[in-house]
Structure formats: C-alpha cells, structure tokens
Amino acid sequence: MSAALLVRVLRNPAAAEHLDAAQWNALIAAAKAERLIATLAWRVEGVRLPDHVQPILRDARMDAEREARQALWEADRAAAALAPIGVRLVVLKGTAYAAAGLLAGQGRFIGDLDILVPRSAMPQVERALMAAGWEWVKEDAYDDAYYRKWMHELPPMIHVERDQMIDVHHTILPLTARPKPDADALLADAVPAGENVWTLSPEDRVIHAAAHMLADGDLQGGLRNLWDIHCLLEHVDPVALDRRAARHGLRRHVAQAQRLAGALYGGGGALTLWDRIVRARLLARDGWGRETRKLLVFAFYLRSHWLRMPPLMLARHLWTKWRKGHRPR
C-alpha cells in the first residue's frame, strides 16, 4: 500500500533516507496521484535523497509555486471585480492558505479560486464577475437550476482570458446537507490576509476543511485534505475550535478530522471503527498510483450523494443525470 508509505514519509521525513528505488517509485507515484508531491518535496527538504529524486521534487515545487502565484493573482483580480459593489473578497482553501502564508499552503496545488460571499449579495456578485470577464463554463438548464436551488455555490465560472475557474460560495456545505453551518458567522469573523483579501478565521478554516472532507464528497483527494487539516490545527486552540464547531453543527466531523489527522500525520491516537473505515478509504492507492479497494471507494461515492440529498431527491437527481448520459466512474 503506497498511500501508507506516503503518509509515513509525510509524518516522518527522515524515513525517506532509507527507501530503495522501488519504494521511491511507489512513493512518487502515490504522491503525484494524491496531489501531494510538492508537499512531499517540502517535507523532505534537508533529508539525504537519491540523485534522481531531486529534480523530480524540484519540478513539483516549481509547479506549486507557479500555482500559488497564479492563485493570488486570480484573487487580486476577483477582489478588484468586487470592489465597486462593496463586497469584500473572502477566499477559501488553497488560495487562502497561500494568501495567509500558512504551512498548509506550502507545496499545495491550487485549482480553482473559491470565494465566500453573503447569499444576499449573490446576484450582484454574479453580475460584477461577468462584467469583469468571467463566464459560465457550460450551459445546462438542469445543472444551473440545481446549483442555484440546492448547492452552496454558483455553477462554476471561468475567466475568458485567463482560463481560470472561480467557485462562488455562500456557505460551506450544500443546502441539502444535514449540518447547517452559520454562514453569517463565517463572514463576520473573517480575517485579513494581505491587501484586499480575507480568509476565514483559523478555527473556521479547520471547520471548513473538515466539513469539506467528511460531510461532503467522496474522499477523493482526502489525504491532501487531511494534510491541510493537520497543518491548520497547529494554529488553533482545541477548546475554541470545539466551541466554534458546535456553533456550525459540525462538532462530530471536526473531532473525527482531529483523530484522523493525529493518527495519520501526527503522534497517533485512538480510532473508532468508523474512523478505521475512513482511513482504509484514504489509503486506497497503490505503488502505480492506481486507486485500490474499488468496492470501498464506490461505497464512499454513494455515501457522498446520500450526504447531499434526501432519498427521494437523490433518486430524482440520479435519474435525470442518467438520462443525460452521466455514469459513475
């Protein structure tokens, strides 16, 4: 199991000194597949590495640096687009970690720009972004209606010149999910991170990452999300975090994220049966970078839909998507 090897080296970088070539191949393939290769590169800095590994890790770091630079520029552009309507730019996830200069941002690959705005401001935000060159990725009446009615974000938009995507959120979980985070509190307690850019408070960053990983989605990329959480936890007081998580209705998820982060990346800790099942899903990656434990992975895929929707709504949604030709991977 190479995801396990990846976790072991991230936890204890000195272990990298004793790997043979076959283990390095497995480690690199798993790290690339989990999008943790540049994080790995940062972690093993200072460790004695085989000659052939160095340029591979250097390339990964260069890619991550470029993505961070690009992400901050996108944030800057979005802030400029929203300035005239008086909406301040709160960035989430990777862009936030880069903007705030956090350890979680070191070597992190950053895809889309995720921002959080008040729900009441969504129509103005949408118009302001379109005026500044963002446009819809694909027009589909069902998806569009679905996003607007049930999701926590607008359908993705892409910038016509820079080819970069933006996801505009008004809260951190779909409206159909059972926990109901307090979006007003998220925005009210946001903290500045550089010029014109804000991020969630340290506690809310952890809570968002935990909600994203454990209350939404199928744990694709879960090892990276958990690495984020592991790094973000260093900046918060556990008691304050628990109090804040209770306010968002996410105590259970945050506690589980803490246990898993401790068990995989930290000093260890006791796990429940459910934690162990999640851990088995997180480690489903072999030395060729392939996903393993297909049944377990599929079960988590089904669960992600279950989390998002009540049964009847789920049935209707799947039927509509099926007729449109969509199939699970």
Partner: peptide, 12 residues
C-alpha cells in the same frame, strides 16, 4: 531496470 523513474505510465 530498477531505476527511479521521472514518470509512471500505465496501460490499464
């Protein structure tokens, strides 16, 4: 044979 590779290719 057995070298550390820059890239992994899979035919699956």
């Amino acid at each position: 044979r057995g070298a550390i590779a820059d890239f992994t290719v899979r035919l699956q």
